[in-house]
Design a protein around this nucleic acid. Structure first.
Length: 154
DNA sequence: GCCAACGTTGGC
DNA sequence: GCCAACGTTGGC
């Protein structure tokens, strides 16, 4: 089993939205970066666990845990000309973008703030992609040791 | 609102 | 293949 971190802007889609969704499940659409696409398509497996991260908000940080409930499949929002995530270069016969389904496992009792993660950047969380300057991937893998350490921060 | 960092695009 | 221009991300 693998571990992931997935970013979302809560003003667009938050953990509250996921908690209210049918079966607490959503398709993770709209990823339009090739490196992230490759991971969604090739590396995500059913049963993998992912941290849900709120970005571009008052208190950026990890807010809960999700489980991958369906592995990579074509992102249909790319086919819809009326959708924000439409991409004319993605065709049904040859989809360019992929997504997974995620199901909310648990909301944290408090936000594990980015600030708190940074405090451990030089030691326990050394090498964590999220903490690398300029990292803009919205989906990234996480080491098991980092996953466990972060869980203990709650 | 600012700005650093990075990905993408397109001219050559 | 290079690289400048541009757009986006995302913390502050």
């Amino acid at each position: 089993m693998k571990y992931w971190l997935m970013k979302t802007e809560p003003s667009t889609f938050s953990i509250e939205d996921l908690a209210r969704a049918p079966k607490r499940t959503t398709c993770w659409d709209g990823v339009r970066n090739f490196q992230a696409r490759n991971m969604l398509r090739d590396d995500f497996a059913k049963g993998d666990l992912a941290f849900l991260y709120h970005s571009s908000c008052d208190v950026p940080g990890i807010v809960g845990v999700m489980k991958v409930s369906r592995p990579g499949y074509p992102d249909h929002t790319a086919f819809d000309p009326d959708h924000d995530h439409f991409d004319a270069d993605s065709r049904r016969e040859e989809p360019r973008w992929f997504m997974v389904d995620v199901t909310l496992e648990r909301r944290f009792s408090r936000v594990i703030k980015l600030e708190m993660l940074r405090a451990h950047a030089a030691r326990e969380l050394a090498g964590m992609q999220l903490l690398r300057t300029g990292n803009r991937l919205s989906v990234m893998p996480l080491d098991e040791v980092h996953w466990k350490f972060i869980l203990a921060l709650e």
